[in-house]
Amino acid sequence: MSKHGFFQITQKLFLRDGNSLLVLRDQKSGHGDLPGGRMNEDEFFEDWSESISREIKEELGESIKIEVNPVPIFVHKHRVNEGNLPCIIIAYDAKLLAGKVQLSDEHDFMEWVDIKSFDPKKLFSEYMLDAVQLYLTKYA
């Protein structure tokens, strides 16, 4: 008999400024990343938007103002870089309202890329690449 799995949840934002999408690179792994991150255990039974807000402040700075559509655009499988643990990506659409991104030390690179011409294969890999390609196919 198979046993039930335990999976982490990461909430990722496809953060847009018009036709530009914010892409990041994880400082530890060197892999492409998107704003957002894993939900803490104590956040699970709370409003999930609070977890997103916490991650955005940590990763993009206090001054950035964004609007997140609270309805997920898709769910995708992923492996967390640390420990290669199975994880579920819940993807959201978001738009930049004001402010300038101040990268944390979690990421060592950022770029606003044109969704019509961006090739994610240069930056992203594995399941995150699949998720970004899915987004670009649907929303570019």
Rank of each mutant, 00 (worst) to 15 (best):
S2E: 07
K3E: 12
F7M: 13
F7P: 05
I9G: 00
Q11Y: 03
K12T: 02
K12D: 02
L13E: 00
R16M: 13
N19M: 09
N19K: 13
L22P: 04
L22C: 12
L22Y: 05
K28Q: 12
S29Y: 04
S29A: 10
H31M: 06
G32L: 09
D33K: 13
D33F: 04
D33V: 07
D33N: 15
G36E: 05
G37V: 04
G37T: 04
R38K: 07
R38M: 09
M39V: 15
N40I: 02
D42I: 05
D42W: 04
F45D: 13
F45R: 14
D47L: 11
E50A: 06
E50W: 07
E50K: 13
I52G: 06
R54C: 10
E55V: 04
K57N: 10
K57F: 09
E59W: 06
E59M: 09
E59L: 11
G61Y: 10
G61N: 08
I64R: 00
K65I: 08
I66R: 08
I66A: 08
P70M: 03
V71M: 03
V71P: 02
P72A: 11
P72E: 04
P72N: 11
I73M: 02
F74T: 03
H76G: 11
R79F: 11
V80S: 14
V80I: 13
N81R: 08
E82K: 13
G83Q: 12
L85R: 06
I90P: 00
K95L: 03
K95F: 01
L97K: 14
G99C: 01
Q102N: 06
E106L: 11
H107E: 04
F109L: 01
M110D: 10
M110N: 09
E111R: 14
K116S: 02
S117K: 04
S117H: 07
D119A: 05
P120T: 04
P120W: 02
P120Y: 03
K121G: 01
K122R: 13
K122I: 15
E126L: 07
L129A: 09
L129Y: 01
V132S: 05
Q133D: 09
Q133E: 15
Q133G: 04
Q133R: 05
L134Y: 15
Y135Q: 13
T137Y: 14
T137W: 10
K138Q: 10
K138V: 07
